[in-house]
């Protein structure tokens, strides 16, 4: 079944992109989950939708923008949203989680306005919402490749600092770790990965790929390092199998990927008896 992915260029791109996403999303997801920020992925994916919708709208009225990959605008919005979230978390010091519904609803609200103006729900939009195996282009693939490379380098460089900050922020600051800069880099990274994942899993389901594999991994892992290992394995398995199934049965790939993640989670819950 998987051979078919190597017969067509566009399928090869989606497989490779899927492999990168299957690594990046759960990996960053581990940090998000242990910092109790898993909902940020939701907020950022919805603001990405606003960006996509804006790009589609521009393309409709200004032919100049029609050729522009909506991913760029999605990324720009996602990163801006990330910065707003950090800002709001400082403004509402004692209600930090409030930043998430604010950005999430703003994202959807404005997104829907743009979509309506751009004349409704096209097929294109459906792919962005739920992912697709067949719409990945060469430029998508290249852009996501660059993002992956940057993120991997950053993770290698700052793994220990992010680990410390997630576990115990005060202690990390005392030992001289630059908290603000690292949180900033991290959230921008998350925003980029969310925008990058959208082609494969879709805006509405990106956060699932960041959190479900982690939820399963935490049932098995005995250490922080192992949590990453399991999360990435579950992420990759679900993405690759999900793409194959999506192609075979002609379903949106986001759906199959999330379904597989739910199955992995259920199995993990059944086979492990750990209390979190």
């Amino acid at each position: 079944m998987i051979q078919v992915f190597f017969q067509f260029d566009f399928l090869r791109y989606s497989l490779y992109t899927g492999l990168m996403i299957g690594f990046l999303a759960p990996f960053l997801g581990v940090f998000l989950v242990v910092r109790r920020l898993s909902l940020i992925a939701d907020a950022l994916s919805h603001i990405t939708l606003t960006g996509i919708a804006f790009s589609l709208l521009l393309g409709r009225f200004y032919p100049l923008f029609a050729g522009l990959n909506p991913l760029y605008m999605g990324m720009a919005f996602s990163v801006t949203g990330a910065l707003f979230i950090e800002r709001l978390r400082n403004v509402y010091k004692y209600y930090k989680e409030l930043a998430i519904p604010i950005i999430l609803s703003a994202g959807i609200g404005i997104g829907v306005v743009f979509i309506s103006l751009a004349d409704g729900f096209t097929n294109d939009l459906f792919h962005y919402l739920f992912g697709s195996v067949v719409t990945i282009t060469r430029t998508d693939f290249q852009m996501i490749g660059v993002i992956s490379a940057v993120v991997v380098v950053l993770i290698v460089l700052f793994y220990k600092e992010w680990f410390f900050l997630s576990f115990d922020e005060d202690q990390a600051v005392i030992s001289g770790i630059p908290k603000k800069a690292l949180h900033f880099i991290f959230i921008v990274m998350v925003a980029l990965v969310i925008a990058a994942s959208m082609r494969i899993v879709g805006i509405l389901l990106v956060s699932a790929l960041m959190t479900l594999p982690v939820a399963s991994a935490m049932r098995w892992a005995k250490s922080f390092k192992q949590t990453f290992l399991y999360a990435v394995i579950f992420g990759e398995v679900s993405v690759v199998l999900g793409l194959v199934l999506a192609l075979h049965f002609d379903i949106a790939s986001g759906g199959t990927i999330v379904m597989l993640n739910v199955i992995i989670l259920l199995i993990s819950l059944l086979l492990t008896r750990k209390r979190m």
Binding site: K160, F163, F167
Partner: peptide
């Protein structure tokens, strides 16, 4: 602290060296 944090004793104690390293 978040007692569900998936870290081992070794990993937690290692953090003590991060600032120095």
């Amino acid at each position: 602290f978040n007692s569900g944090f998936p870290a081992t004793v070794f990993e937690v104690v290692s953090m003590g060296l991060y600032g120095k390293v």
